[in-house]
Design a protein around this nucleic acid. Structure first.
Lengths: 127, 127
DNA sequence: CAGTATCCTATTAGATACTG
DNA sequence: CAGTATCTAATAGGATACTG
């Protein structure tokens, strides 16, 4: 069963790409992979709060999109390294810009939230 | 009840901001607001596939974050305009970069997906 | 026009246990 | 180590009806 979003994503592929990026975990994984290859459990440790299941699923999507490469080494037990593809590299530059924006403007956003919430409280008491 | 994500978002506010951006609808709304103010039903029409409920909720979040401003005019029936705040404006520049990346690399992503899916099919038949 | 409220289903995500 | 499978709880989102 297709959801409306899927239908529109097909009509406008940009949305499809955006849909992949519009995922907090993807952004975090991409960012974590920037310095170099990382193993599955390394990612799991670094990205606090992500479950094994979601990490696995997200990596698969990123691999399918050609953003992340998976390489398995025939050790015992098996070792698997995830790294950025060239395509993934170009993306992380943009993603970094987003992360930097977040860092720079985090406080402004938090202030805005406080003001908004305070105004709501005012409205409730005063009106 | 707090989900793990919320806990980590509090510890790392960048994640909180990222969490807001990591939403396909937010990106689309921000982008649609770039040229100038748009009314509620205007957004609803322009952003195909979004429901009234989700549009309303997303706009509220964006307003709370100080990214979008809401102005109501005392007409009958009431008219409401949504526009970017200065903070929202700075964000859209970064978001645009992301959209442009998507446009430029859309084909590469689709090719990667095809290759990935084909390889899976091979594996199933051959292995 | 610009929403809110309600109901209900579908998808997601967490916990846990298991495997090569 | 690097996952998959299964079950379940929570949430998001669509459809619809209603309001100032």
């Amino acid at each position: 069963m297709e959801r409306p979003w899927d239908v529109y994503a097909q009509a406008c592929p940009t949305r499809m790409v955006l849909d992949r990026l519009a995922d907090k975990w993807s952004v975090l994984i991409l960012d974590r992979l920037k310095p170099g290859p990382v193993r599955f459990n390394g990612l799991r440790r670094d990205i606090e709060g992500i479950s094994q299941k979601v990490l696995s699923a997200t990596l698969k999507k990123l691999e399918r999109d050609g953003l992340v490469a998976r390489e398995a080494f025939p050790t015992v037990p098996v070792t698997v390294e995830y790294s950025l593809t060239p395509l993934g590299c170009t993306l992380t530059e943009t993603v970094s810009a987003l992360a930097h924006w977040a860092e720079r403007n985090m406080e402004a956003v938090i202030e805005a939230q406080k003001a908004y919430d305070a105004a709501l409280g005012e409205a409730r008491h005063g009106g």
